[in-house]
């Protein structure tokens, strides 16, 4: 039986890891290869590493940091941030990525998803789906490059298009919950999970062990974890033991 996944999400800025709240207020979160080695030693199911400044600064991602993390990552590695062209995507694959996460830039050039899926397979294409709530509480796409809402597409329309084009997995970030420790947005998960049939990694809001249990009980197959692993005394071993005790199916 396929097991549920716990996936540390690492955010890269100027060669260091950082973590913040709602895509701002970033604090230092350690050295990328050392943190990756620790997650590997604790049997994290995968790792996601995103260069959070590359697209905003209009440059390629930090391939040097990517390579250092790839060398330590004995489990699957997803690389993201600044993947704005096929050549950059291909270089990230050759740097040691097993999967690539395409975030806001894919909104401008959706055909990139087709090209990369055709070359590396749908299983290598992850759509980074950033969703927030507008003033009325309606879900809306969020563009971290501008810090604003994307008005011309709904999250459901965009996720369906991206999967049609070749995305094989969704990294669903509830931006309004990110770093808040207020719990996962399970209603958002259900909305997206009903729209597409590819696997979904839900992230944003994990603060307590109960939040993880509730998400898995609601059927979420993979959880992305940032703040909870960075700014608390939790670690993957402890989380896994707790969730196994709740009766969820995880790797052991």
């Amino acid at each position: 039986m396929l097991t549920r996944r716990l996936i540390p999400t690492l955010l890269l800025r100027q060669g260091r890891l950082v973590k913040g709240v709602r895509y701002g207020e970033h604090r230092d979160a350690g050295n990328p290869p050392s943190i990756t080695r620790a997650h590997a030693a604790q049997d994290a199911d995968e790792v996601l590493l995103v260069d959070i400044d590359a697209s905003r600064e209009g440059r390629a991602p930090d391939f040097i940091a990517f390579a250092k993390v790839a060398e330590e990552c004995t489990m699957p590695l997803t690389l993201g941030g600044g993947l704005t062209s096929f050549d950059i995507a291909q270089k990230a694959m050759h740097t040691g990525a097993d999967k690539l996460a395409f975030c806001a830039p894919a909104l401008d050039t959706p055909a990139l998803l087709d090209t990369v899926a055709r070359r590396f397979g749908a299983q290598a294409v992850v759509l980074g789906l950033d969703v927030t709530q507008d003033e009325s509480g309606t879900y809306a796409l969020y563009d971290y490059r501008t810090g604003g809402i994307v008005a011309d597409r709904t999250p459901v329309a965009w996720v369906k298009e991206a999967v049609d084009r070749g995305a094989g997995e969704i990294r669903l970030m509830a931006v309004h919950r990110e770093g808040t420790r207020a719990g996962f947005d399970l209603e958002l998960y259900r909305t997206i999970a009903d729209a597409v049939s590819v696997p979904i990694i839900l992230e944003g809001g994990a603060g307590t062990l109960d939040h993880l249990d509730a998400a898995m009980a609601a059927g979420v197959e993979a959880l992305g974890l940032g703040t909870m692993l960075v700014f608390s005394d939790n670690n993957i071993v402890k989380l896994r033991q707790y969730l196994l005790g709740c009766g969820h199916v995880l790797r052991r």
Binding site: M1, L2, Q123, S197
Partner: peptide, 15 residues
């Protein structure tokens, strides 16, 4: 084949 409870790709750790 996609089925209830079987999302595709088959992605993750399986026994």
């Amino acid at each position: 084949e996609e089925k209830p409870g079987r999302r595709v790709p088959h992605m993750g750790w399986n026994k």
